[in-house]
Design a protein around this nucleic acid. Structure first.
Lengths: 230, 230
DNA sequence: TGCAGTTTTGCAATGGTTGCAAAAAGTTAG
DNA sequence: CTAACTTTTTGCAACCATTGCAAAACTGCA
């Protein structure tokens, strides 16, 4: 089964991914041409498109794997486990997956984040990939909670969690604190989505309607630059 | 102030938008060339790019207006109003804004939704535009709730609400029920985000941990086609 | 070695996007 | 009304991603 063909194909694929990642990081996404990537991987530019559908897609080569892993977590729902707990586990698992590749210089996700932040085309594609994954996850969740969650409810649940994390993380990134702060954002996003936005503002009487340890801070909020205009 | 120049510019802009919208709907996004759009608006293809940054952007001409309107709602927070209520008002207002243009044949949003669903490039751009808006909204929310919400919390709140609605709406669209069902999705998404994903699964004891009227249905869930594979 | 199936490649064409400098307007002062 | 100035439009050339097509190279197998 693993003939020369198959092996060569994976090797070429890897070569393409690594070449692209390196070139993108070195010269920037837009400054890198397909021809250059192909040259690094010793294939003709034309052949690139039999490995990836577009220049952008090289960067998201692991999207499917991540999705499948998340789906596996959902499928592993424990008897009677609430949606919130299950989704929480899914998020944790995804974080672990991300951290697992801390082998080389910068972790893949760090590099990718920088690239995506810098190149609008990549940003757009990334958002699309995420929406796609979320839709699939919503279906899976709906199936796992058959009879308990309508498709729309499942979708809303997935969308709330992922959306909260996504925007919170983006917020952290737009300030200057790239590294570990993202984990804070993930935590905050998860909590807000699971416990509800309503819990964020204490009902102006009861002592503790707070969300969790991280909401201990109605903090003074250091001054920060306004976001770039649209 | 309103010289010939200014007036001509708005006229051309409108012409471009209408031409693009019509051509996209008639022949599809990808089948429509810039040259055709430009021709319809009586300008040279080159000039198109002094009106919009890309072919995709014509379709999202009102993104900034929508964002500003949403920001205005946030800025109009009533004294002591909780985040959840304010965001809820924002969503309602946005819906009204959408419905307001029910003048011509299909409402703009209906057309746009179809186009975005059909053309991957538009889908990606749409998601990017939304992320952008959400980031800005998060900042605004953070400012409106100065001292009460950290930037991350504000971002999580916005992300949860928009994310829940977005994915729930997408779910409705992926099935075949395009028209009024989207409003259901918006309602469900909003509730789930505001009240929290946790409220979705009743804690297997207390009678009513339900989310709202729409969660009355642990419904039998009519069979539906699986989502397209990644 | 030679056949059959698959992959790679070269080539040409399409179309979005950009930089640049000339041409065409529009605006304003005299 | 005209000249001088500013802004907008245009034409042109170039770059690059992407695609279809058919020839060429390669792999697996008899």
């Amino acid at each position: 089964m693993s003939g020369l063909r198959e092996r060569k194909k994976v090797r070429t694929r890897h070569a393409l991914i690594e070449a692209a990642l390196r070139l993108f990081t070195e010269k920037g996404y837009e400054q890198t041409t397909l021809a250059e990537i192909a040259a690094e991987a010793d294939i003709s530019p034309r052949t690139f498109f039999s490995y990836f559908d577009s220049k952008e897609d090289v960067l998201f080569f692991d999207a499917e794997a991540r999705l499948r892993r998340a789906q596996a977590v959902l499928a592993g729902r424990r008897p009677g486990e609430p949606v919130a707990d299950l989704l929480s586990r899914m998020v944790s698992d995804s974080m672990e997956f991300t951290i697992e590749d801390n082998d080389l210089h910068l972790s893949l996700d760090t590099q990718r984040t920088r690239l995506v932040l810098a190149a609008p085309a990549l940003q757009a594609r990334a958002m699309q990939v995420m929406l796609d994954s979320q839709t699939q996850l919503a279906w899976t969740l709906h199936e796992v909670f058959a009879g308990e969650l309508s498709p729309e409810q499942a979708a809303a649940a997935v969308g709330a969690v992922v959306g909260a994390i996504k925007v919170a993380a983006m917020m952290v990134l737009l300030k200057g604190e790239p590294n570990a702060r993202i984990e804070d954002a993930v935590k905050i996003g998860t909590t807000v989505a699971l416990e509800g936005v309503r819990r964020l503002t204490p009902p102006r009487d009861s002592g503790d309607g707070r969300t969790g340890p991280e909401s201990r801070r109605p903090r003074p909020c250091a001054p920060m630059p306004p976001p770039p205009a649209v």
